[in-house]
Structure formats: C-alpha cells, structure tokens
Simulated scan of single mutants.
Amino acid sequence: MSSREKILKAIRGCELENKHLPSLNFGECKQEDLLAKFSQTLAAIGGRCRKVGGVEQIDAYIQEAGSKYPCIINAVSELRGFNIIDFVNADARTLASTAIFIVRGSVAIAENGAIWVTEKNIGNRSLPFLCQHLIIVVTEEDLVVDMHDAYEKNAIDIDGYGVFIAGPSKTADIEQSLVIGAHGPLSLEVFIIESSSNKP
C-alpha cells in the first residue's frame, strides 16, 4: 500500500462528531440604524453614500455630470439616459473611456459596505472595473445587516454571475499606505432611494 493510499484510508476511517451550526441571530436592527451603519462603513473604505427621495434627484445629478464627463453609461432603465444596450458587446478598449457607469445594486450590506451587483443589471462584466467613477443605485429595502442576511436574500443560483463591490479600487501593498483608485474606479457613490419611493 502506497503512502497516498494509507493517508486516504486513515481519512476515510475518521468519524467526526456532528455538531449544530452556531446561531446567527444578532437581534433586530432598525432601518435607520442600517442606513447610518452602511454610510459609516462605506465612508471608511473610501466610498460615498447619498440618500435621495426618488429617481428624479439621480436624474438631476446625471444631467449635471453630463456637462463635465464625455462618456456616461447608464444601466438603470428608469433613469435618464439609459444606454447600456449600446455597450453590452463592447470590448475593453471601447469601455476604457467610460467616465461614469451607473448600475442597479441588489443588496447593500451594513457590516462591510459591500453591494451585490448581478450580470443582468451590469450588462457588460467589464464596466464596473474599467470606468473612472462608479455609481450604484439601491433602495432602503435593499439594506441588510451582514453577509449572512445577504446570502439569504440573494438568489445566487438564479442570478448566475454577480460580484460584491465594496468601495472604489484601492491598494495598500506599498509601505502599507492606502491608495484609493489604484487599479479601477477612482470613486464609488451609492444613491439610496427612500422606502416610500418607487424602486428603479
């Protein structure tokens, strides 16, 4: 019997005691507390959070940004200037000139400031990583406490490709000095639409 077979036989012979998973009940958290916690966490990792009353305020922001930036790609159909259809099959060279990319997020996590974005909302997988400035739109109902809640809320088996995005790109490899906008978006801004407003 080879060493490999001996090791595998020993592993198969081990019987581990079944143990119950720990409880993940962290108690109730009010919606306003979630928003404050998410905003604080996002700021700590270099992002910005802005609460708005409805999509018209985001439209006004897009219109203002349009006078400053030549290329804005919008993947949120309810917002002004929806044009992701024109870029779904675009290559990286074309997308590299994107100044602002606007996308809809599915879940925003107060624990770590991450936002779950699915491929059906992105349109083109490269855009969140090639744009200069990233804007993600969520609603207050999309806020959850932690990753456990996020996985319960997400239909990952249905969504297919998706990505958790937490803040703008950053690195601290050199002299442990944090650099924002190192190899991707220079900024991340999250618009949170109030509960009473219609979801985009």
Rank of each mutant, 00 (worst) to 15 (best):
E17P: 08
L35S: 02
I84A: 07
I85V: 12
L79K: 05
Q63V: 07
L34H: 02
C29R: 15
N83Q: 10
G53A: 04
E56G: 06
A44P: 02
E32C: 03
N83M: 06
K19P: 08
S67H: 14
I62Y: 06
E17G: 10
S77M: 11
E17N: 10
I73R: 05
I84R: 09
A43M: 00
L24D: 14
D91W: 02
V76S: 03
K30Y: 05
V88Y: 10
A75E: 09
Q57T: 08
F82T: 03
A90M: 02
F82P: 06
C49N: 07
Q57V: 06
N89R: 14
R80T: 11
A65T: 05
K30V: 15
N89Q: 11
D91Y: 02
A65N: 10
Q57P: 10
Q63T: 12
K68F: 04
A65Y: 04
A36D: 12
R50T: 01
G27W: 05
F82V: 03
T41H: 00
D86L: 06
Q31G: 07
R50E: 01
Q31R: 13
Q40D: 15
L35Y: 01
C29H: 13
C71R: 15
L42E: 03
V52N: 01
R93C: 14
K51F: 00
P22R: 06
F82A: 09
N89I: 10
S67E: 13
A75G: 15
L34N: 06
K37N: 15
V55D: 05
N89E: 14
A65R: 14
G47I: 00
S39D: 14
G66S: 14
P22F: 02
Q40H: 12
N89W: 05
G46R: 01
I84Y: 04
I85C: 08
K19G: 12
G46N: 05
N74V: 00
Q40V: 02
Q63I: 07
D33F: 03
N89G: 08
K37C: 06
R93P: 13
Q40N: 14
N83L: 06
Q63Y: 10
L79P: 03
A90F: 00
L21D: 13
G81I: 02
A92I: 11
Q40K: 10
Q31W: 06
G53C: 04
R48M: 01
C71Q: 15
N18S: 14
K19Y: 09
